[in-house]
Structures are given as structure tokens and as C-alpha cells.
């Protein structure tokens, strides 16, 4: 559900940093409102936490655009988050403490609102013509990947 058409992937050299920076600012503000209402995160520390995540995301995007190694932007962004909070990274405890005021579930709420609004005619057409069989298969596919992974993990733990 991360995006609707594969062509929308925002990876690579043509990534528009200004556009991303603006959209991320809007999204961060939406999350700020949401996480203050829902999980009742404190107002100002919450904003600081979201601002740190904003900076991490932008660093990840800059790496995506200019790094010689091509990886999807989400991989770079999570890598930035991981490296900055590793126990042996200087100042990692400070960062970990600050970002604790960003609620992880509330961070996904605006994204899914956009996703619901973005369902286009094409997606509805596919759903209608492919019919109930593909819906059943899709659910089995999801159950399959989940049970498969859980079973193997269980075996090796």
C-alpha cells in the first residue's frame, strides 16, 4: 500500500528534493496534530521529535539522489535512522530520547488517509473485473507469506 502505481516510485536521480521537503513538512504537521489528539504526546517535544525524523528523511533522500549505489529511498531513510541511533554512535542516546515523542502508529495515519483518497478508477476497475476469485487468492497470499515467515522464524529461534 505504499503507493498506487509502480511508476510513482520516488527513487533515483530525478528525485525532486524541494517537492519532497514541502510534502514532508505538510505530512509532519498532520502527524503532529494527530499524535497530540490520539496518543496524547506532549506538544513541543512532539514537534521536536517529528522535526528530527523530518531531517533524517531528508538526509536519506539526498543520499538516494546522489549516492553511487542505487537503493530505494526507504532503504536509505531507515539506514539513516538506524545509524544515528546505534548504541556506539556518539549522541545516539539524545536522539533516541527525543524521537520517543513521535508516535509510530500516528505517523502512519495521514499516509493511509491519502491512500484511501488516491484509489483511482483504474484500481476499482481491476478489482471489479478480476472478481472474487482474485480477492480470495490475495487473502491466501497474505496468509501464506505471514504464516510461512512466522513458521521459519519459529524454527530458527
Amino acid at each position: 500500500m505504499t503507493d498506487i502505481t509502480p511508476e510513482n516510485r520516488s527513487d533515483g536521480r530525478d528525485l525532486d528534493l524541494g517537492y519532497h521537503a514541502t510534502v514532508l513538512a505538510i505530512v509532519s504537521l498532520l502527524v503532529w496534530v494527530g499524535q497530540t489528539i490520539g496518543p496524547a504526546k506532549p506538544l513541543v517535544p512532539g514537534l521536536i521529535a517529528l522535526f528530527i525524523l523530518y531531517l533524517m528523511t531528508m538526509v536519506g533522500l539526498i543520499i538516494t539522489k546522489y549516492a553511487p549505489v542505487r537503493l530505494p529511498s526507504v532503504a536509505w531513510i531507515s539506514l539513516v535512522g538506524i545509524i544515528l541511533t546505534l548504541p556506539w554512535t556518539p549522541g545516539s542516546a539524545w536522539i533516541t530520547d527525543r524521537v520517543a515523542n513521535a508516535d509510530f502508529l500516528a505517523l502512519a495515519t495521514p499516509c493511509l488517509a491519502y491512500a484511501g483518497l488516491a484509489i483511482a478508477k483504474r484500481e476499482m476497475d481491476v478489482a471489479k473485473t478480476s472478481g472474487w476469485k482474485i480477492a480470495v487468492i490475495a487473502v491466501l497470499v497474505m496468509i501464506g507469506t505471514y504464516l510461512g515467515s512466522a513458521a521459519i522464524a519459529e524454527f530458527f529461534l
Binding site: M1, T2, D3, I4, N8, R9, S10, H20, V23, L24, V27, S28, V31, L50, L53, Y54, M56, T57, G60, L61, S73, V74, I77, S78, L79, V80, G81, I82, I83, L84, T85, I95, T96, V99, A102, F104, L107, A108, P110, C111, Y114, A115, A118
Partner: peptide, 14 residues
């Protein structure tokens, strides 16, 4: 959608 999920991915990194 793809952009809106990015801060969430950063949070997971942390």
C-alpha cells in the same frame, strides 16, 4: 502516499 510513509520509516530506523 510514498512520501507520507517516509517519516514513519525513519522512526522505525530509530
Amino acid at each position: 502516499i510514498v512520501i507520507a510513509i517516509m517519516p514513519f520509516i525513519a522512526k522505525f530506523g530509530t
